Amino acid sequence: MARQSPAFQDEHAGWADLFDGSSFHVESHVAGAMATAHWHDHVELNLLLEGRMTYLFQGRQETVEARRLALFWAAIPHRAIEVAPGSRLICLYIPFQDFMALPIAGSIRKAVMHGAFLKAAQIQTTDAGTFQRWVDEWPGADPARRRLLLDEACLRVRRLALDPLEASDSARREGGECRDGRSPSLDHAERMIEIINLRFGEELSIATIAAALGIHQTTATSAFRRVLGMSINEYIVRFRLSRALHLLADTDQPILDVAYACGFGSASRFYDVFKLRTGVTPRQFRSQLSAR
């Protein structure tokens, strides 16, 4: 489950059922100073259309100006403390497992996990129109369209990762400090994620992952939940589903092949998980895409 402060739950109560760590979401609002910090299990890609705002993020003040893209892991408590009147913000909430699956430099993924608040060094004039289109399309989008919007957002993250970035000095350092210091839990979680991301198509268990790290299963499970806010098995399911969605959308592989390639083990297991998490079957999802 995503971790949310009461203030965050109240502000977003209208779509709270959709907003969990496995769901992508797009929203736009006039930003304001927040009474308390909030946190949730996503990577945020934010674009301030007008104005200026300052976050309190991991003990640092991070100021964002209009039209400059910002990226950070929202599982780290964050709070808007100063906001210019009329500052309109567009937020894209990218599931953590989708971000971790992106083919970007490992140093970028590691920096984000360790608390980097990344900002584009240069303003891209096309971002405002693209982000507004995502906002406009989101409310009426079916699952296939929403997946397409997520794919477009992920492509923007990939481009951001290739462009010059700004980050505070502490966040730039390799192995920079995380929200509770350079803790063993973060090290363990980071290594477990690397194993899952590489071996998701295999039969994976907590015992297998813990053994690969040379740690006890209890240590592995507690460290992962402390850092990610979810169980190891939940992350595995989310990551496998993310990869399956990509294969269904981008290839003509038979559905059964997709199920096995992504580690689901059987067609029935794949269909059950897919329908539960997306609301449609794999065949329906692919049909919706081909109809467009």
Rank of each mutant, 00 (worst) to 15 (best):
M1L: 12
A2H: 12
P6S: 02
A7T: 14
F8P: 06
W15I: 09
F24Y: 13
F24N: 02
F24H: 07
H25Q: 12
V26A: 05
A31S: 15
G32M: 07
A33R: 14
A33K: 10
A35F: 05
T36A: 14
T36N: 12
H38Y: 13
H38C: 08
V43T: 15
L48S: 06
G51R: 03
T63Q: 06
E65Y: 04
R67I: 06
F72P: 03
W73M: 11
I81N: 03
I81L: 01
S87C: 00
S87Y: 04
I90V: 15
I94T: 00
I94Q: 01
D98C: 07
F99D: 01
A105M: 11
M113F: 14
H114A: 08
G115I: 04
A116L: 04
A116Q: 00
T126P: 05
R133N: 09
R133P: 06
V135E: 07
E137A: 11
P143M: 05
A144Y: 11
R146Y: 09
L148G: 10
E152W: 09
A153W: 05
R159N: 13
L162R: 14
P164M: 10
R173T: 13
R173Y: 09
R173V: 14
G175W: 13
R179I: 09
R179W: 11
G181F: 08
R182P: 07
S185C: 07
A189E: 08
E190A: 13
I193T: 09
I195P: 02
N197D: 15
E203N: 12
I206W: 01
A210W: 00
A212G: 04
L213K: 00
Q217K: 13
A220E: 03
A223Q: 01
A223K: 02
E234D: 15
F239R: 01
L247D: 13
L247R: 14
V273M: 03
V273S: 07
T278E: 13
T278D: 06
G279H: 00
T281F: 02
Q288Y: 06
A291P: 00
